[in-house]
Design a protein around this nucleic acid. Structure first.
Lengths: 189, 189
DNA sequence: TAAAAAGATTGACAATAGTCAATAAATCAT
DNA sequence: ATGATTTATTGACTATTGTCAATCTTTTTA
């Protein structure tokens, strides 16, 4: 099994050699180029992605070409266009890798296989889901209670790698503001 | 078992008589008055709530007394101050019942008991969690991509009961806008 | 049912953030 | 390395939304 994935599982789940092999067979390695699109808006997101190296960006585009970043997924974390993946409906969001990336890809069917076959896997998955849900609740909170400057400061405290690694444009639409506003926040503060 | 809870479980899970009794013993009925506080900000949310009648409001307050509604939970749905419940940390949010309500209350320990004892319970719980997570993702999307009028229109389409049943002030801070702005949206549109 | 409290609306103004446009800086690809 | 492309910054202006205050309406409760 890929060491990064092994580390991700950590002590949350102890796998027998057979189960470890099963996990290993379900996750397929995929390498992407800078800005490569993995899921096109309108198609169904059929995979979960574990980021070994690089990052993924789940983003929305409107008719005027405006983009908004829904989620960013960095090393050691899993994600996808979740509503599409779960509901098996065409995705509102697209997914790209803003940096050249190494991914481990798990299909929906293989996720179900692991959930059904490996004792404890569903519990581990469910605990991860709870944490992701909590993160999204906290993002909602910041959006309904704070102005753009406060949201920027929080982001700087909690996920500085987003600000450091990604272009302003992406940081801005992740915060739900224009890149000009972000540029001004940075110089004023 | 309370018929509303039975309906909620529906065909998602078939319970043996013993397990049905177990579920029934874990959920305790609680009646609340209008605007009664169930969880005070700063305390730990130790329960999950299933709403039989009425509704619950999970909301944030700042030092100036401004309120923001994080979630609204209506009949037939479950919820709580989720980050506090899961992480067992003091809650940033408070919970109140804006209407007189009938609730079925499940403690953290009893939730774990059901997760461990009843085959299929964790899967049902996990599927519910996925749907709640999806709803929160869609809320994030509306907050980062739409202006207040568009958010109001979406809310009108998807959850008109919020607009019909609850005071403007709560609708407004659920949308992340001031009540004056909401009032103007309603008259203009 | 009447008085009191809470909620909703409207106006005037202020503040925040967005848009468009021009320029500067940084990054990429050959 | 250097020209080309993308990204970032800044200015001027506009639009949206928030705040404060006054008034009107509805709801609650004594």
């Amino acid at each position: 099994m890929h060491p990064a994935l092994k580390q991700h599982i950590g002590d949350k789940l102890t796998l027998s050699p057979e189960h470890e092999l099963l996990v290993d067979n379900c996750f397929k390695t995929r390498l992407t180029k800078r800005n490569e699109i993995l899921v096109e808006k309108g198609s169904i997101a059929r995979h979960l992605y574990f980021v070994v190296k690089g990052c993924l960006r789940v983003f929305l585009t409107d008719d005027d070409g405006n983009e908004s970043t829904r989620f960013l997924i960095f090393e050691g974390r899993m994600g996808t266009a979740f509503p599409s993946f779960i509901l098996k409906e065409p995705s509102v969001a697209s997914i790209q890798s803003p940096e050249p990336s190494e991914l481990l890809v798990l299909s929906y069917a293989d996720r179900d296989l692991l959930l059904n076959e490996i004792p404890g896997f569903e519990t581990m998955y469910r605990l991860g889901l709870e944490l992701d849900y909590i993160a999204s609740i906290q993002r909602i909170e910041s959006l309904i209670t704070m102005d753009s400057k406060a949201r920027y400061n929080i982001l700087m405290q909690t996920q500085p790698e987003i600000i450091k690694r990604l272009p302003n444009k992406i940081v801005a639409d992740y915060l739900g503001i224009s890149q000009e506003t972000l540029s001004r926040l940075k110089s004023k503060k």
